[in-house]
Design a protein around this nucleic acid. Sequence first.
DNA 1: CACTCATTCCTTTTT
DNA 2: GGAATGAGTG
Length: 805
Amino acid sequence: MHTEVELASTYGNPREDDGGVFAGLTEPQARAVRHTEGPLLVLAGPGSGKTRVITRRIAHLVQCGIPPWQILALTFTNKAAAEMRERVLHLLGEGGAARGLTVTTFHALCARLLRRWAEVANLPGLKPDFAIFDSADQLSLMKKTIEGLNLSTGNWPPRSVLSRISEAKNDLQDAETFAARHHDFAGRTVAKIYQAYQKALRTAGGVDFDDLLVLTARMLRENAAVREACRERWQYLLIDEYQDTNRAQFVIASLLAGEGQQGRPPNICVVGDPDQSIYGWRGADITNILDFEKAFPGAEVIALGENFRSTQKIINAADAMIRRNTRRKHKTLFTSNPPGEKIDAVSCRDEHHEAQIVLEWFRARRAEGLAWKDMAVFYRTNALSRVVEDELRNAGVPYVVARGTAYFQREEIKNAVAYLRVVANPADDVSLDRVINTPARGIGDTSLDKLRNVAAIRGVPLADVLRSLESNGAAALGVELTARAQNAIGKFIRTLDDWRDVAKPSPFMGAAAQGQYETGALAELVERVIRESGLEAMYKAGKTESDEERLANLAELVTSAREFEETFDPGADPVLTDPRSAAAGTYAAPTNVLTMLHAYLERVTLVADADSVDPAQGAVTLMTLHAAKGLEFGAVAMVGLEERVLPHARVAEMPDQLEEERRLCFVGITRAMQRLLVTDARYRSFRGVPERQIASRFLAELPADLVSHSDQSDEFGGDDNGHRSAWDKPSATIESTRRAHKAPQARIGGRALAEGVLVRHPQFGIGRVEAVTGGQGARARIRFRDVGVKTLVLEYARLELIDEG
DNA sequence: CACTCATTCCTTTTT
DNA sequence: GGAATGAGTG
């Protein structure tokens, strides 16, 4: 292997090496790129050229003569992986110098490894054609599991049980370990559910997101052969966004990195920023990055603190705020960019007013020459996007909401994908349940319940029962079915078989027999499934606009399948038996549609919201703060800077989460290159109920001299008194500014609060109104059932109206 | 068995 | 404000 001395002689004068991997790098950046052997931690502040360093470093490794297939780069999202791959390719030239390089997400890598090795590694109940269950699938399976145990979903909400199990999985506790550690009633019950859930999951031939990591960690730990095969192949490991890794991911990384070769330390390079760790709730363990040097002794640490993205004012504000966190590795943020404008802060009346403010601010930015695509709106929760969307739509401003998962959550797409999943894996009961009577084909709940019962008793997938019904009749199963239902089921099974025959490798099918894949076969299968399942006819029969839209979406699914096949690169498969064949370009293509279908479904399931961010669209981008990480925009508007929204309400119960909320805010601020707007609203409606809001503490943490604040939250202010706009160019019209805010006096949720009305208070409980005074600072005297009479200021009292009866 | 209308819970963030 | 159940009718 190359040493630093040799490299130094090759790249003696980086800055003049135009076009080379060291061109234009700062000293610390170059140091990170130059580092090839042994553990390396790059602490990369926002806008510090992190991606640049990573991609250059990979290119550098390859230029040093390391075979690309020995390099594994891991990210969290497909988008990050795609971007990295593209940039490395660009650096190395399209000539195939990067062939065999593995750049992928943790989850996708695990899926591939498991499919390749599951049988060898003897993982209980895991078949190589397993389906990956997304959150919706998990939820419906969990519901069934809880009901199957005769527990109430009221006492054991599937969501929270799932999150407890997910927590356990992220910490690598299986059901048995979990059971051994929890002896209280709730813990024991969850353990029982955990066990049953895993069993149901395996029966359905499925794994959930967490399982992908857990099972891979376990496989690598317990199976020396697999472990060695992976280590043998990947000598250089790189992990992006390392601050977001959880315990399972840390174990996988450590096992892959191994002990290094011949007593030398492992070549693991991790890049991240503890200040941008925002996935603690998903098990991300910030100590992974804080203690990297402990886990990998002798690690070189390089801090990239210089920011090349934002103005001084933005950087200084972000720095001042994040300094308040105590659990961090301090690095000084600085920039030699221009000072820039002050941060705009506007206090608004309510969320509608806020949306108008954002719109006007964007128009002003556009007047200054910024394009729509250079602007973005960030918010803490998805629910906040709606009002902004409405405002932009009405104003005719083009926008896109970054919700990559949304497309695949549409009913029609879920249906079509569920059919495909049943083709790929007939045991997938969750998908089968979804499609067996969609569109309605006469297989009703009564019949299904009987058959599900049989399946549950025998512990086999429903599909097996259906099949045995088809060959042996209902009597053999010990159930009675109407002839109508039996016919319908028979027909359904035969349709499935037809599709599977097409998909299966068949020695009689010409090209397939030669081991060649015919491009278009997957798209053809998707098209066939949509047509022959009756989905197409079902939506064609409907005449509403949404039905037309649904047909269009289904057509799009066919297109997406076609695109997938066309861009599918079998050489990029991380688990090729012989990586050298990838380098040589002589790998074997997949031989049948089923293989392609599996790859496609995997891709479809492992999408992230951030994956859909496409600045080429020429539109304003709307997204959650979480999705914003890693991106940058000329002008950023952050809305909902309020207590209980941006530090989220949950912080009240879990104070240690406050620092993560602050990091979230930090991430948002540091996305802005030139201009930043932060807004808070005095009133905001949650689920239709307006609530009095308090400005976020984070606003107060921004140094006053960097902020230009404009309070427009006055009830009737901000109409046309000249103070409406705090910035240079207010828009010419006042169109919607007139939508006066409803006076909060003596009103709750738009309904008048009168004597004798029942209300609920978050602390005091239920009470009856005895008297109301209106006007500014309206009050009500309320006799509470439990705590007696209190006089409350309506503005602050977050009361809820209760209907009598 | 299929479809329509009312009632319930909900939401933090996502691979 | 909306999705996801459940009751009731054709």
